[in-house]
Design a binder for these strands. Structure first.
Lengths: 332, 332
DNA sequence: CTGAAAGCGCTTACAG
DNA sequence: CTGAAAGCGCTTACAG
């Protein structure tokens, strides 16, 4: 009768002349409750507009049937697809998903971790920000008995489940393709090197060049560039060297976009005078002209596997998802 | 000492020789607690690795300082920008944000609403799915004393705060531009018409055509097309009519993409033989070639305003954010 | 099969 | 300024 007062299992119990415990069990589908009673309780719950109180249940249970996911940007194709995979698994296993974005900020990432710990989530799936080079917050997750799963951008020192791409090989393949097409002076614009995935790509790049007996000038290697804007600036420098590169490998399609734009400004034609490789196969990669050669990371599969690590109770170990080099028109 | 046992304010209170109530107040920065004591409690909390239990606090308070947001797709530029605006406001007001996507499914949207009600969020900000034509779940939000704010795709019959674009005018402007450039046989591929924003765009389109004294053939108007795939199919039909259109206005850039692709397949050149207008100004709009004429909706501002409606305690009323017609190269 | 009771961890009137 | 106590709504041993 009171306005704004939440209907509780006690209200249902009173109306039905049974105990609250019984109502709880009926609502939660416990064995040893007759179908008839379950239905009665359900009906009454609907009639009174009863709402299960998640906070109360989580408090009592000390768990929440919830996975928290933290990614740098929800609107990058790679991450939103990974989230789609995680969501799929959550739906199947009747878990909730809470999505956070760090916006590539270490500070925001730490705040998101704190929030999820406080919320008592059962598992945190994370792909770390570009800024993140200390990982105490990841340790704290585990100290609070929350399962940690890392994917794509992982912290090497943290011993959790990890789902990664074989990005080393992808970078190698990209270089091999460029070499086969006659490019020789290949530059590399990389990512933040505290993260293995970016270190691996660089290694893949360097090893392929070395295997081809090509000396890479020191200034052909640039690090920590993940945005289009930085990509433009770096490419402007590279392309105006005395001995400029004839191809550039990048670690995201956004940087590749910057390279293309810089080339355009300098009147350098792609792919004839310059080959360009992106990474992550963003939606626009196949739409722009010329189509951007890139790497498909199978993000949805990665997300799916990351969630499954939790649902399967896997505590540690690394899974590797193969990625695919997609040759389009920014390379001959 | 016990393993896996959460540290509580009682543990802090015991260690410090004060009461739990005092600890709670110190942690929550209540007035009338000396700075010295606050610091002591903070330090002890850190030393014991104390974690505030959100579930317990929410249960006790009957509120959660949390906003839930439900959008059709987190990876569409419009929605991820809107979320960025909401996040900004949440950060300023020390609120949490829980992000859900309906994936354009009515069923998933209802499930998300239930979940957020059960979680006791204080406010739900929603942009409804393309499938949604019944709105009982939105009423339920309000019946549970949760503030409802709708944006962009709103339900007319639900009397909540709303943040909308003047999409009617945007559609009018787009048509006026096409007419000025000499296009005359203009077709319209619209969205689900139970939602005002799509009805408005169609009205804007029709009124501009009528004002120009142009009769629009019945089969130039198509409804409920939001994906690239459907866009291709519909455009294929339109462009192979006996008397095909010389311009097509769409309601999302993805559909426009489909139209461009269909035109390509049929050997129809853009913008000479066909003008194309998108909507929403996706990232790829300015990247593809020719650049896609589209409409900028100022999504971040919309998200920001939607959140502010809640923070300002506004119960109802509609705010209109002006959008901007961007002419690129898919129109002369 | 069913119920009474305790307790999850917090906050907040109430009292001093 | 400080504390004792109640209670948010649920679930789950425990007992029958």
């Amino acid at each position: 009768m009171k306005k704004n007062k939440r209907v509780t299992i006690y209200d249902l119990a009173n109306e039905l002349g049974i105990s609250a415990s019984y109502v709880s069990r009926a609502l939660n589908n416990h064995p040893g409750i007759s179908e008839k009673m379950k239905q009665m309780v359900q009906l009454k719950a609907q009639a009174l507009n009863y709402r299960h109180n998640t906070n109360a249940a989580n408090l009592r249970k000390g768990a929440s049937s919830t996975i928290g996911v933290i990614v740098p940007k929800i609107n990058e194709n790679f991450f939103s697809n990974a989230i789609a995979g995680i969501e799929e698994a959550c739906t199947e296993h009747q878990h909730h998903l809470i999505i956070c974005q760090s916006d590539e900020s270490y500070e925001k990432e730490v705040a998101a971790v704190q929030k999820l710990i406080n919320l008592n989530v059962d598992c945190i799936i994370i792909s770390v920000s570009a800024e993140t080079s200390r990982f105490k917050h990841l340790e704290e997750i585990m100290h609070n008995n929350i399962q940690l799963v890392q994917f794509d951008r992982t912290a090497e020192v943290i011993n959790s489940c990890k789902v990664e791409n074989d990005t080393r090989d992808a970078a190698r393949q990209a270089v091999l393709h460029l070499l086969a097409k006659g490019y020789k002076r290949i530059a590399y614009i990389g990512g933040p090197e505290q993260l293995p995935t970016f270190r691996d790509r660089k290694e893949g790049f360097l090893s392929a060049m070395e295997a081809a007996d090509i000396v890479v000038p020191w200034n052909y290697i640039v690090g920590n560039v993940l945005t289009k804007e930085k990509g433009i600036a770096v490419a402007m420098d590279l392309l105006q060297l005395k001995n400029p590169p004839d191809a550039i490998v990048t670690v995201t399609d956004y940087v590749a976009l910057g390279v293309l734009q810089a080339a355009g400004q300098l009147g350098i034609t792609v792919p004839d005078q310059l080959g360009v490789f992106g990474f992550a196969n963003e939606i626009f990669a196949e739409l722009i002209s010329p189509g951007l050669s890139s790497v498909e990371q199978h993000a949805k599969v990665m997300g799916r596997r990351a969630a499954d690590c939790y649902f399967e109770g896997k505590e540690a170990g690394t899974e590797v998802i193969k990625c695919e080099v997609l040759v389009r028109r920014t390379t001959k």
